[in-house]
Design a protein around this nucleic acid. Sequence first.
DNA 1: AATATTTTAAATATCAGATGTTTTAAAATA
DNA 2: TATTTTAAAACATCTGATATTTAAAATATT
Lengths: 255, 255
Amino acid sequence: MHDMKDIFDTVKSNRISENIVHQIRGAILRGELKIGDRLPSEKDLAMKFGVSKSSLREAYRVLEAYGLLEIKQGMSGGAFVKEVDLKTIKDGLVNYFFFQNPSIREYTQIRTFIEPEVVKICALKITDNDIDYLKNNISEMEKEVDGENFMSDLDCAFHKKLADITENTMISLIVESVQTALINVKRMLQMNHDFLTMVCDGHKKIVGALCERDPDKAGKEMLQHIIEVETGMLACKNGDMVLTETGILKSDTGR
Amino acid sequence: MHDMKDIFDTVKSNRISENIVHQIRGAILRGELKIGDRLPSEKDLAMKFGVSKSSLREAYRVLEAYGLLEIKQGMSGGAFVKEVDLKTIKDGLVNYFFFQNPSIREYTQIRTFIEPEVVKICALKITDNDIDYLKNNISEMEKEVDGENFMSDLDCAFHKKLADITENTMISLIVESVQTALINVKRMLQMNHDFLTMVCDGHKKIVGALCERDPDKAGKEMLQHIIEVETGMLACKNGDMVLTETGILKSDTGR
DNA sequence: AATATTTTAAATATCAGATGTTTTAAAATA
DNA sequence: TATTTTAAAACATCTGATATTTAAAATATT
């Protein structure tokens, strides 16, 4: 009836460091260790666990990679419990998406699900300060369109700002991660001057609708913007890159 | 005009292991190292980098935590480049959400954005095999409602299956991660028998609409299901937990 | 008295090398 | 030929020594 695989997890390595990681992560997730708590020194904790310093240090490196610990050197240094930050998660997603290599169509699809809804909420919650921020973002971006500085992170910041207005952590995380991944693709494709102008115009229309506090109009403007971006990217040809149904490939690697 | 902080990144630790992590991760992300490639042995690579074995091992632990390497023991073992898997990312998100502690409202909001759209696509793409899978999932779940086994991961699997039908990696990742986090909350709240029955009924209605290949109906059923789940969770009182506007708190910790 | 400098101690970072364990391939044996 | 044994390659762990970093304490200077 049931295969054993359905019942038991495969037993992984018995590495000491993994055991320690499991214990400390568990203590944090159970709330026994709080943000800012300092763990005993390497020497003491290694003794307590009955392991060598090297094994403990490997565990520390892993927990640090998870973003759960921060290790400080020097007197009154040590290992401190830390809140996992956005950067840790975003870096992880970058690693993941590198192998997944989503297609432009996939990026567009997830964006059309979320971002029009986001701006609908924004239209109801946005403050004058927020609008100032967005207008400023657009004018900074227009400067870059003319200059050499090319795109930078202003596009990402625009969409993240809108997501942040929803005050929903998960939405912010998703929007920012998708934007970051997408902007990497744009960089690879080396989008041209016209494309950047189009992006600025789209952003202006969205902010215009938000100024009127019109949710439906904002939603429609965002949807159109997303589609225009997709069209622009699909139209873009670049010698090194190949756009396919299943992703963006470097042609020279022949993957 | 510009603060130096805008121009330069703060220089972090000069830890040797971090330097090595940076180099190897860079080589993978630049495509110089491919999936399955084996790095030189600890001894050789440490020599090549001009560092001690311990430093190299710490770097390996970090890259392993990122999901980029798999280290195998024994003859013809070693460090192999690996595709980052979903589990790595999900675990990271669990860590992140533990500190963010999103509210039920936030979970519902992101779900209402994505999942009704997902089933609309499903209604167009779903196969008979997929429908069999979903029906089977529901009947397995009904068994658990009566028994002791309580919920398990079938609820998550149902929603993930729908997400997978879209063939959009990012959607699958998001839906599965949100589901996993939400199910942890449900476990804490110890949802009762009626709630589980309601979930099964909701799933049945969704599959019903999918059988008819009716996108709008499927979308509406999913939306209603999500709202029912929210209502059910908000109505649930549990001695150890407190539901607030900003999240789910353990009352005894007094956070 | 206030400030600047130097010293010191606690903690992590790194290294070197010895020993143990795991895994697989090859060699020996049945 | 099939099985068992053996050997070697690679990671896992431990020990202990040395270097570096950092903040606080002590000292010197203004």
